[in-house]
Design a protein around this nucleic acid. Structure first.
Lengths: 107, 107
DNA sequence: TTTCTATGTAAGTCATGACTTACGAAGTTG
DNA sequence: CAACTTCGTAAGTCATGACTTACATAGAAA
C-alpha cells in the first residue's frame, strides 16, 4: 500500500538526483541544493515528499538538518517489482511455449 | 539509462492498473479498457507509453492487438532499486554505528 | 463491396505538481 | 540582545500530461 507513494516520489528526476546525492552519505539541505539547478526551497519541498514516502529520514543537528537514505520505502518498491517480475517472466515463458506449439501445429 | 522511462511509466495509477490487468495474461485494448474507469483511447495512449518503456509488448492478432507484460523494462528498474537498496542499507548501518559511538563518548 | 469491429491518432481541455520569491521560525555566534 | 545561518512554509506562476470526443485506418464478416 505504501509502494505507490515511493514510486511516485522517485518518478521525479530532481528527486532522483537528490537521492543520488544522499547515496554517499547524509547531507544538510543547503549542501544538497548547491549541487542542483533548483532553489533551496525546491529541494526542501522534495525532501518532504521523499520523507513522506519513507525514502529518507531527517535528524536535527544543531542549526541544520541532516537527511539520509532510508531503506524502508525502497524495500516496499522492491517487493512490488519482484512480484511484477515474476508475473512478467511467467507470461513471457507462456508466450514462448504458445509460439512453439503454434509452429508445431503449422499445416 | 532506460530505467527512468520505466519508473516514469509506472508512476501513473492508471498505468499500474493496466499492468496489473496484464498480470493474468495477454489482453486486447478493449478488454483492458472495459475494466477501467477511463476511455479506450486513454488506455491506448497508456499502452503506448508502457510499450516505449519496455514494460509491455504488442502482437497483432487478426483484427485486434494483444498486449502482454515484458520483463525488459522491469528488470532495468529492479537493478536501479537494488543498487539504491545497497547504498541505503550501508548508510543505515553507518548511522547506527555512529550513534553507538556517540553514546560511548557521552559524558 | 459494404458494414461492423477493434484500434490508433489528432486536437483541445483541465488538473496536478514542480518551480519561483517572500517571509517567518529556530539555533548559533558576536 | 543583536546579527547571521539554516531551514520550512505560503502564495502564486507555468508547463506537463492525463483525460475527453471526433476522426481515420485495417481486418473480419455479411
Amino acid at each position: 500500500m505504501t509502494y505507490e507513494v515511493a514510486i511516485t516520489a522517485l518518478a521525479d528526476p530532481t528527486r532522483r538526483a537528490i537521492v543520488d546525492r544522499l547515496r554517499h552519505g547524509p547531507a544538510p539541505v543547503g549542501v544538497v541544493a548547491k549541487g542542483l539547478p533548483v532553489s533551496r526551497p525546491a529541494v526542501s519541498q522534495h525532501l518532504r515528499v521523499l520523507s513522506d514516502a519513507g525514502l529518507v529520514t531527517m535528524t536535527p543537528q544543531g542549526n541544520q538538518r541532516l537527511y539520509s537514505l532510508a531503506p524502508g520505502g525502497i524495500d516496499s518498491l522492491r517487493h512490488y517489482l519482484d512480484s511484477l517480475w515474476d508475473d512478467a517472466l511467467a507470461a513471457f515463458q507462456r508466450a514462448a511455449q504458445d509460439q512453439a506449439k503454434q509452429k508445431g501445429t503449422k499445416p
